[in-house]
Simulated scan of single mutants.
Amino acid sequence: MPDGGTLTVSTTVRYISGHPEVDDGEYVEIAVGDTGAGMDETTLRRAMEPFFTTKPVGKGTGLGLAQIYGSARQAGGTVHIDSTLGQGTTVRVLMPCTDEEPNDPVQAVTPVDIAGTGSIKILLVDDDQDVRSMIASALECQGHYVTQAENGNAALVALQENVPDIAIIDFAMPGMNGAELAKCIEARWPGLPILFASGFADTDAVKQAVGNRAKILRKPFRVDELLMAIHRLGTFA
């Protein structure tokens, strides 16, 4: 919504039948709608393709909707988009309802659980400025020191000036991708812990390029998941 507008988030329960992707039954619908620019038919048809984006290089990876669609399909749901050019877009995520109780309830790890383990220096490399700023702000709120880099070359310059305790690297970046940057880091600063914070569609590519030693945190993630991933690398030991 470049000129402003209204963002509406809503939920409802719907009965779905005859859908080509999901079984008949009740689904929770989570809808996020805007009154922004909308999409034409060509863009709408490709909106959930991995790496498809209408943004210029360095301003987006095209993985956001693809990740949401992949996560929904894994859970037995799906995603539908309604959009009209010049009027806005609504993304509807459909997730199957269940009455079952979780077999092994997950105990949430809150940031305070590991916030007292000491401050560390973190190099954060991501070409998306909004994502980079959000992650940096969350880490700085926990008392850590964050150096930001928008690409691989900027990251190497920052490393020469000050070696951090850990590097958090995006994979899909213009120019030098995350795997290429990791190889440079391993050659010049062996032993520096590296955490890939990357999209669902990147996982296989990261492992192919770097091997099983790659530590991957899939986007999107919560702050507590990020802190726990850092903790598991042994940085707080």
Rank of each mutant, 00 (worst) to 15 (best):
T98G: 07
D99P: 00
D99E: 08
E101G: 00
P102Q: 08
P102G: 09
P102Y: 07
N103W: 08
D104E: 14
P105K: 02
V106G: 02
Q107T: 12
Q107L: 15
A108C: 09
A108K: 15
T110V: 10
V112W: 10
V112D: 15
D113N: 11
D113M: 10
D113E: 15
A115M: 12
T117S: 12
T117F: 11
T117N: 13
G118P: 08
G118Y: 08
G118L: 09
S119K: 05
S119D: 03
S119A: 15
I120K: 11
I120W: 01
I120P: 03
K121I: 02
K121S: 15
I122W: 01
V125K: 06
V125W: 03
D126T: 04
D126Y: 06
D127A: 08
D127M: 07
D127R: 06
D128Y: 07
Q129D: 13
Q129K: 14
D130E: 13
D130R: 13
D130M: 12
D130T: 10
V131F: 13
R132V: 04
R132D: 05
R132A: 11
R132T: 05
S133M: 11
I135G: 04
A136D: 05
S137W: 09
A138W: 11
A138G: 09
A138N: 11
L139Y: 08
L139T: 02
L139A: 04
E140I: 03
E140A: 03
E140F: 00
Q142V: 00
Q142H: 01
